[in-house]
Each structure stands twice: as C-alpha cells, then as structure tokens.
C-alpha cells in the first residue's frame, strides 16, 4: 500500500477550494486531535484516496474522482481553520 500524507492532496484540494487547504488546521471529529491537513496519513491515490487522522487513524476525508466530477467526503472533520484572505 502506498502511503503518503496530506501534502500530496494539495493539488486536488486546491482544485476544489481555490486556496491551499494543506496548511489549514483540522480538528478530528473522532478524537479531537488538531493539526495541519498536510499531516494527514494518505492511503491510495487519485482517483480515490482516503486521509486518516495521524492520532487515532480514523477516516478524516475521502476524495474520489469519477466521470468528470470530484466527490469529497469530509465526515471526519469537526472543524477547519484557515486564514481569511487579506488577513
């Protein structure tokens, strides 16, 4: 199994959010761990990847690309913290 980390999600998440989300802090909905999205453990690779919490290993997000669409499941994120533009 290839394992990378949240750094490798930068391109696919940029494409959705138009800002760099890998520097954002997430709070894990399962265990409350907080860290940069870049530190998520990544399994699989595009077109289907699963990112897990580095602390409790529960699923934080899934990203699937199919038929010209992208599906983003963020069930494992309780909160996302990003700088505001111009801040």
């Amino acid at each position: 199994m290839n394992m990378l980390d949240g750094n490798a999600l930068a391109g696919d998440l940029d494409d959705i959010f138009t800002v760099d989300v890998t520097t954002a802090r997430f709070v894990c909905a399962t265990c409350g761990h907080s860290g940069a999205m870049a530190t998520l453990r990544l399994f699989g690779r595009t077109p289907a990847s699963v990112a897990r919490c580095p602390s409790c290993t529960e699923v934080v997000l899934c990203l699937v690309k199919a038929d010209g669409r992208v599906f983003l499941d963020t069930r494992g994120i309780a909160r996302l913290e990003l700088p505001m533009s111009g801040a």
Partner: peptide
C-alpha cells in the same frame, strides 16, 4: 502538470 501546490512543507 499543475502547480505549484502545497504551502506547508
């Protein structure tokens, strides 16, 4: 290609 991407590392 696309990028540059990633602002953390």
């Amino acid at each position: 290609l696309r990028g540059p991407v990633g602002g953390w590392f």
